[in-house]
């Protein structure tokens, strides 16, 4: 049973440099948002270090700021981060079946959209040392950006902060939109989720539902409908 060499760790670090740069930009925005939500820089950094999940962290801020219920937070995190289950399942197929649990727990820490993307495209078996390299450099960028955003957010000109608010949404768009070109089902999912979310935001009565549950309801409804109407082909996609 092999876990990889120090050179695998180095390869992982190298391959994570683009992720690291992207993370600094996005987590900088998270740092700013978290200070707007009254989190201290330490709390912001802890959130990033312990969670490493952009969408989950951003969505949690509104609940924390509103002192929302733990149930809402748990359900929201579960739904938003459910995709990591699919990714972890896919990654488990790339590991040595004999790989002991401690290594699996280590790799689990860093399952994000981007780290998953790089790991799953890696040729051959996935060594823990390689994953650790990816995680080390990526999380470094994620935490550094959070710290800088949380510390210096208030020092920056307001108009710059205003525009940085778009960074996270830009990243989400960059993740979901390219795939709409190769799958009309994905196109339909993205379009109807946006439409439904708009309806829930502005329609009378529906607009009383909190933003956390709005996202959950829209996600479950649209993803379930799509699974019935256009189930994925076996061995296809991902």
């Amino acid at each position: 049973m092999e876990v990889g060499k120090i050179s695998d760790f180095r390869d992982g670090c190298r391959d994570a440099i683009p992720i690291c740069l992207g993370y600094i930009a996005v987590s900088f925005a998270f740092g700013i948002e978290s200070s707007k939500a009254q989190l201290t820089p330490l709390q912001a950094v802890m959130t990033s270090l312990l969670n490493v999940t952009s969408a989950g962290q951003f969505s949690a801020l509104s609940i924390i700021e509103a002192q929302g219920s733990f149930i809402e937070l748990i359900v929201l995190q579960f739904i938003i981060n459910l995709r990591y289950m699919l990714m972890s399942t896919a990654l488990s197929q790339k590991l040595d079946p004999e790989l002991p649990t401690p290594y699996r727990l280590g790799i689990s820490y860093g399952v994000t959209d981007e780290i998953f993307g790089v790991s799953v495209l890696k040729k051959g078996k996935l060594y823990p040392m390689y994953s650790y390299g990816l995680i080390f450099v990526s999380v470094f960028g994620w935490v550094l950006g959070t710290f800088l955003g949380a510390e210096s957010g208030q020092l920056m000109p307001h108009r710059l902060i205003s525009c940085l608010g778009l960074a996270i949404y830009g990243m989400f768009i960059a993740i979901i939109v390219p795939d709409t070109r190769k799958s009309s089902a994905v196109m339909a999912v993205v379009a109807s989720a946006m439409a439904l979310s708009t309806l829930f935001t502005y329609a009378p009565i529906l607009n009383h539902i909190s933003s956390g549950f709005r996202i959950i309801i829209v996600t479950v409804a649209v993803a379930a409908a799509a699974s019935v109407i256009a189930p994925i082909k076996e061995d296809g996609d991902e």
């Binding site: 989720a193 946006m194 979310s197 709005r214």
Partner: peptide, 12 residues
């Protein structure tokens, strides 16, 4: 498979 697209679109 569809969850990330629906979630991120709804959040955006």
């Amino acid at each position: 498979y569809y969850v990330p697209y629906a979630t991120l679109a709804a959040m955006t």
